[in-house]
Design a protein around this nucleic acid. Structure first.
Length: 576
RNA sequence: CGGGGCGUAGCGCAGCCUGGUAGCGCACCUGCCUUGGGCGCAGGGGGUCGCCGGUUCAAAUCCGGCCGCCCCGACCA
């Protein structure tokens, strides 16, 4: 392909809106343009890269499943039958047809797949099935951000498995796990697989595939010693032991006028936040009745709402309002504590177990208590409630955990029978009895692979990608169009590479060399062949973008040198 | 939804406080020149100043309302 004939609108300066590297470079390299918040057009280079990623995904998915293509437009009844028409809330794009019937744009496709299953599957002999598609998803995100990282329309590879029993689901799950690893490896991503919280999808087990990046939105705890890795929504850990004074003294009231937050009380008393008890009142919905529950943590820890939900056996909870806090504790928020409360259920985080002589709210405005010792001064239930912190101890091997920021590129779920049951999918088993198949669902964010690659592989001038996903394998840069010797060699190089099956971009624009070099370095192509001064002697330069390593080679040895530079680029990706 | 910021040519910005001429750099077009790191010279094209309303002889500028975009938070399969 000749650069002069293509539309690659590179930008010298980044639009002021872009802050994260992948966003800046996708815009500057002419891969994408924004249409609206969280809605992007993919231009020539962007679409080319995405198609290459999709080709890899398709190849690996074809090895374990069958490709479908489902509608993006769904009737409301479908989602009502699974109960998610309400459940998805404002995140769902909704619209009406000309007869005022409700429709939505698909944000995921469990319902459509389950609908096909319930209409078509009759016998256990038809199972297992793995069905997948590569399709657009629509989600009205409250806050789209960071270029392609969090958007309202995106491409997802989503697949769904139907099995007779748990053992079958386990196998389908493992197949996906392995296929995902192959996909991300081939894309040259450095990723980790982490235990994940199943969230609104429901289900028993799930793993996320994560790429470390400061642009990411998910926090993940990883253990360098044993390999344990889990999303912070899910991670558990032991806390390094704290040193408390002896628990001799009785709780003692003291005035803390106007001191409400942990930070204020810490500053006021001179005690470490670790020696404070944080008390959070929630209202829990138990069979329609609102029941107050006080959650207790140390001042340094954050309540993890997913774990809180688990501690409550799945009952919905919300933070208590000011009036409710006064009603149940007799004090405003900021002076609430566990001692002497009645009619309120207490649940304390395990990190408070065995602690002594702490500071807690006194349930009296502007007052706290010193020398509060759990289980002596108040009785409580215990649960793992807190969000794991950097430095907490690995639950498997007790080594310190590291908390890192990541981008989620894939997620696999064991769904169980949530959808097959609510949507009444049934087949006959070998004994002629009706059984409800068990389901899994599995997703890969296609654009996020591209984004994560750029986050992982960029410098100040631009980015680079492995040849398998880069829009072109090689860019050929003749430094002077007016020099016949240079142009003859450039065309020769171009033809040679093409014959070898490479995707080649020939920069035949009548620009100065500096412009061409800058552009070549910007747009993500892993190898550049510069045709310049020594063209007359039949010598060109092969430049590896990731390292900027330059190698002078005779045209005769071109293919080996390019292969080496490409391969080296790939090697570098996978060993990081 | 709460907090903050921004909206003037394709991109980056100035002008607004103190009302009257819409400007700079890059990009773009033409010609010349140059050709190993965003070259030089000359000439040129392009903007309903986000939208609506108000004040005023006069509004990019002052006032009111609305819309859009970005960031932080909340939220989030």
């Amino acid at each position: 392909m000749r650069w002069s004939q293509t539309f690659i609108p590179t930008l010298r300066e980044a639009p002021a809106d872009a802050e994260v590297a992948s966003h800046i470079f996708l815009l500057r390299a002419g891969y994408i343009r924004q249409l609206s918040a969280g809605i992007y057009s993919y231009l020539f280079l962007g679409q080319r890269a995405l198609l290459k990623i999709i080709a890899i995904v398709r190849e690996e998915m074809d090895a374990i499943g069958q490709e479908f293509l489902l509608p993006a437009l769904h009737p409301a009844e479908l989602w009502q039958s699974s109960g998610r028409w309400q459940g998805m809330g404002d995140n769902m794009f909704r619209l009406k047809d000309r007869y005022q019937r409700d429709f939505c744009l698909g944000m995921t496709h469990e319902e459509v797949m389950a609908d096909i299953a319930r209409k078509e599957l009759r016998s256990y002999k038809q199972l297992p099935q793995i069905w997948y598609q590569i399709q657009n998803k629509f989600r009205d995100e409250p806050r789209p951000k960071s270029g392609l990282l969090r958007v309202r329309q995106f491409t997802m590879k989503d697949s769904y498995s139907f099995d007779i029993d748990e053992a079958g689901l386990d196998l389908s799950y493992k197949k996906h796990h392995a296929a995902y690893c192959r996909i991300f490896e081939r894309c040259g991503l450095n990723y980790v697989v982490v235990e994940a919280h199943s969230g609104a999808m429901g289900g028993s087990q799930s793993h996320e595939f994560m790429v470390q990046s400061d642009a990411g939105e998910d926090l993940v705890a990883v253990c360098r010693a044993c390999g344990y890795a889990a999303n912070l929504e899910k991670a558990s850990a032991a806390v390094p032991p704290a040193s408390d004074p002896e628990a001799g003294q009785e709780p003692a009231l003291f005035a803390t006028p106007g001191q409400r937050t942990i930070a204020e009380v810490t500053a006021f008393t001179g005690e470490d936040a670790n020696r404070l008890i944080k008390s959070l009142l929630y209202m829990v919905d138990e069979e329609g009745k609102q029941v107050p529950v006080l959650f207790l943590l140390t001042g340094t820890h954050e309540l993890n709402e997913a774990k809180m939900g688990a501690a409550l056996g799945g009952h919905a909870a919300r933070p208590a309002q000011a009036g409710e806090i006064e009603k149940y504790t007799g004090a405003p928020a900021g002076s609430v504590g566990p001692v002497g409360l009645s009619g309120v259920r207490l649940v304390a985080d395990l990190a408070l177990r065995g602690r002594r002589s702490l500071i807690a709210g006194a349930n009296r405005e502007g007052h706290h208590l010193r020398h509060v010792t759990p289980e002596r001064d108040f009785q409580t239930e215990w649960a793992d409630l807190r969000t794991v912190c950097d430095g907490d101890l690995c639950p498997q091997c007790q080594a310190p955990l590291k908390v890192i920021k990541t981008v989620e590129i894939g997620h696999i779920f064991k769904l169980g029978r949530k959808y097959t049951e609510s949507m009444q999918v049934r087949v006959l088993d070998a004994n002629g009895r009706e059984i409800v198949p068990i389901m899994g669902s599995y997703g890969i964010g296609i654009e996020r692979i591209l984004t994560a690659l750029i986050e992982q592989n960029h410098d100040e001038a631009g980015f680079w990608m492995p040849p398998v996903v880069a829009p072109f394998d090689v860019v050929v840069t003749p430094v002077n169009l007016k020099d016949p010797a240079i142009m003859a060699v450039a065309h020769d190089v171009y033809a040679t590479l093409r014959r070898a099956g490479k995707d080649v971009l020939l920069d035949d624009r009548d620009e100065r060399p500096g412009v061409k070099f800058k552009d070549a370095e910007l747009i993500g192509i892993p190898v550049r062949v510069t045709v310049g001064k020594k063209a007359g002697e039949g010598i060109v330069e092969v430049v590896q973008r990731s390292t900027r390593e330059v190698q002078e080679v005779p045209v005769a040895a071109l293919l080996d040198a390019v292969a080496l530079a490409s391969g080296a680029a790939r090697l570098q990706e996978s060993t990081r």
